[in-house]
Amino acid sequence: MKSRVFITGATGGLGKAFAVECASRGSDLFLTDISDASLAKLSESLANTYGIKVSFYSCDLTDAGSRAGLYGHIRSRCLMFDFLINVAGLDFEGAFAERTPDQIRTMVRLNIEANLELTHELLKLRDPARTFRIINVSSLAAFYPMPVKAMYSASKRFLLNFSRALGEELRSRNVTVTALCPAGMPTTPECIEAIEAQGLAGRITTCNVGYVASKTIDMALRGKQVYIPGLLNRILRAAGSVVPDSIIARAVGSRWNAAHTRRMRRHGTNKAYT
C-alpha cells in the first residue's frame, strides 16, 4: 500500500513545499487549508506532475464545527493515513497588550487546539501495522521567550514540548513525532520583507523552504525528535541553551523591536508572519 500523507496549511509556503516533497517521493496526499480554490489548483497540478492521488477538503481549523466536518469527511471515506504534517499556524506580531481578544483566541485555537485535536483524531485512524509519523511545525522561536512575538513563541514552545512528550509516549507503538523548528522562511512577500527588515542576521539564518521540507521528511523517517534547519540556527540554539532565559529575552526583545519598528515604518501594517 502506498503511503498517504495528511497536510494542514497545505497551500501556504511551507505546507506547499511539504506537499511537493511528498508528491515527488510518490506518496498520495490529503490536503487541507482554508481556501477551496487554492487547494483545487494545487491538487490538480501535483496529481498531473507526479502521477499521484491527491484529495483535499477545505476547512477552517480555528472553528470546531468546521473541524468536525473534516473528521466526518475522512471517516465516511474510510481514509487512513500514515503521515501527519501539522503546518497550519499563524502569528499576530506586535505588543501583546495591543492584540484583540479575537486575535488571541484565533491563535490559541489554530496553533494549539487544532493541532492537538487533529493529532488525536488521526491517531485513531492509523493502521497499527504500519509506522505512523507526525511532524509538528514548531519554530526556532520555541527555544526563546520572544517579546513582540510572545504568544507565538509560547504556542510554538507548547508544540515542541508536546511533540517530545508524545513521541516518548508512543515510541513502543511505532509512532514517531518530529518537531520542526525553523527560523523565518521566505515563503511570501510579507515573510521576505520581514526577513530583510532583520538585515544580515535575517538573511543568514534563513533557509529555502524546499530544502527545509525535504530535510524534515528525511529526519522524520529517521525518527528524529527535533530538527532545526540550518547549521547557524543549530549553533544559535546551542549557544542559547547555556545563557539564562532572562538575558535572551532582553536581547531578542531589542532585536525584534528594532526589526518590527523598521517594518512598521516601511509599511504601517500588522500582518501575520508564520
Binding site: 489548483k41 506532475t49 521566505p186 534563513t206
Partner: peptide, 9 residues
C-alpha cells in the same frame, strides 16, 4: 533570490 513556490506548487 529565494525558492518561492507558485499557486500550482
Amino acid at each position: 533570490s529565494w525558492y518561492i513556490s507558485t499557486v500550482d506548487g
